[in-house]
Design a protein around this nucleic acid. Structure first.
Lengths: 295, 295
DNA sequence: AATAAAATGATTCATGTGTTGCTTTCGCGC
DNA sequence: GCGCGAAAGCAACACATGAATCATTTTATT
């Protein structure tokens, strides 16, 4: 559909070689590219003032297998128009890549696009609001079970470098939720859960909500069980071509959240990192020095 | 399709009153609004993991005459979104994006680009080679400490769904590395470590290498201490504008690795997932069903 | 525990779809 | 005027689609 689209160019290039009815059909495609995928061929033909068969013939004249192939091409253009970079991304990996490499490349490209989709105004707004709410909490409890453990743990780990406000609800022998008993109305519970939602997470969140604790969540849908009870919910895509859902967008959100929180009090952050640095230096935790030396 | 769309709101509002299959269908509509008008009802139902009839029922539950009316509504939204797209792009830089929004967007965009950079031939090749090596290992030991715990744990979690070849070197009271004592030359140790490299990880890797265990690693540099002793090393970017290094690319690599491994024996994978599914169903682990039902 | 009610799955059906082969029309040189 | 070839219209077909119906399972209620 955009002026630079290769199909559009082809249509224009071949136009003069087409004849009568084909031209009329082609003209309609050029002028109403978005209609193509949204209505049936017969209806499209009616609008274009052309016989249905002409559309089939045009498709073949353009080198497509049949009309459906042409239609699919327009549908694809519609899907990816929002992010015009999609073509760029697709072309990027077009060089000589091996059989199995293509599989991995597709997974990574798709995930990359999902991260970009998080830059839409809506998730950004929620993320920012969540950061503000977390910043003024007395304590921040964090829970994320099973696959979501990845995100919850990472959030807690980073926050624990910055202070002692974060409490990870993840103890052995099922004691994970116990710390919540001391939660107050000034506290916030960050719940991370994506489909399939772990039952324990939901129970814990519900209990906390009843206690008056503010719930914020990183989850995957506006109709997630968490979205209803959350003060703020950031929605992240999780779809993947593999058999499990991807956690990469959720983790990226967690990192962004941590960055925003660290920004709210730069002085305190630097001070905390200084202490952490000294601590780890004394213990020889690291084989090389932490990287925030030169910030 | 936009967050404020009345149909979307209605869908969310009515969601709790819907039942089972209807909810699953509704969820798919919410998460893939642009697909609705672009594919047939039956195909949509397949993607949503739902019977075709369910889509008809959902349409009527939402007050539409039939599915076609619903579909027309989505088609209209698609048409209008594109109209609105023009001026949205026009005032893109100007409008109300809060200060913190830009910060988060920058982080996410940068991370997204880093994922794309993993689609270069070099990392893909390494990743594929690593997957092949892991596929024929007797046991796969996994270690990743501190921030890298995120990646190591995720890899182990997914692999544990697929079988019992994976062993996570992460026990309490410093016993994490003990399992390595039983490692043989037929085993592989996957080490995840980025700067600053945790000393314990390196010690463990060195010991394993001396035992004759094959080392593969996800790390951040060709001159990482791990790269030298690794049979295969996938390098991932970790740079971030925040004070900590990003783990998102490393996690994405882990996911891709898992997908490649799952692909090597599809039958076994599906069988293992079936078992996992039954297990969790019996225990009521999840509040909703795992998503791989309809693959 | 038994029954009713609702939800889900499977089957069937009428309709609309894209396609194809055939007929008709049109343009053009002889 | 007459054939000739390409383009355009037409109608029938095979097939997929959305919807309606009935059977089965699940869930709730008494």
């Amino acid at each position: 559909m955009p002026p630079g689209d290769p199909l559009r160019e082809q249509l224009i290039a071949q136009f003069d070689g087409l004849s009568g009815q084909l031209q009329q059909a082609a003209r309609y495609l050029l002028e109403h590219p978005n209609e193509v995928a949204l209505v049936s061929m017969r209806e499209l033909a009616r609008h274009a003032g052309v016989q249905p068969a002409t559309m089939t013939r045009l498709a073949k004249a353009l080198g497509f297998e049949g009309y459906n192939a042409l239609r699919a091409r327009y549908a694809e253009a519609l899907r990816h128009e929002r992010d015009g970079f999609a073509d760029k991304a697709r072309r990027a990996g077009s060089s000589k890549i091996a059989d199995g490499d293509e599989r991995a490349a597709n997974l990574l490209r798709k995930t990359s696009a999902q991260l970009l989709s998080l830059c839409d105004p809506e998730p950004l707004m929620q993320l920012n609001a969540m950061a503000k709410r977390l910043a003024k909490a007395r304590k921040v409890y964090v829970v994320g079970l099973r696959s979501s453990h990845v995100v919850a743990w990472h959030f807690h780990y980073v926050m624990s470098l910055l202070g002692e406000r974060s409490i990870h609800l993840d103890g052995p022998a099922g004691t994970g939720g116990d710390a919540l008993m001391r939660a107050t109305k000034n506290d916030v519970l960050l719940v991370v859960s994506i489909q399939p939602y772990t039952a324990d997470s939901l129970v814990l969140a519900k209990r906390a909500a009843d206690q008056g604790v503010t719930i914020v969540s990183i989850t995957d849908s506006a109709v997630s069980p968490l979205a209803g009870i959350s003060r703020h919910a950031v929605l992240c895509p999780t779809e993947s071509d593999s058999f499990f859902h991807t956690l990469v967008p959720a983790l990226a959100l967690s990192e962004a959240l941590c960055a925003l929180l660290a920004d709210t009090d730069r002085a305190a952050t630097l001070d905390a990192l200084q202490r952490a640095d000294e601590h780890h230096a004394a213990l020889n935790t690291y084989a090389t020095l932490p990287p925030w030396r030169h910030c």
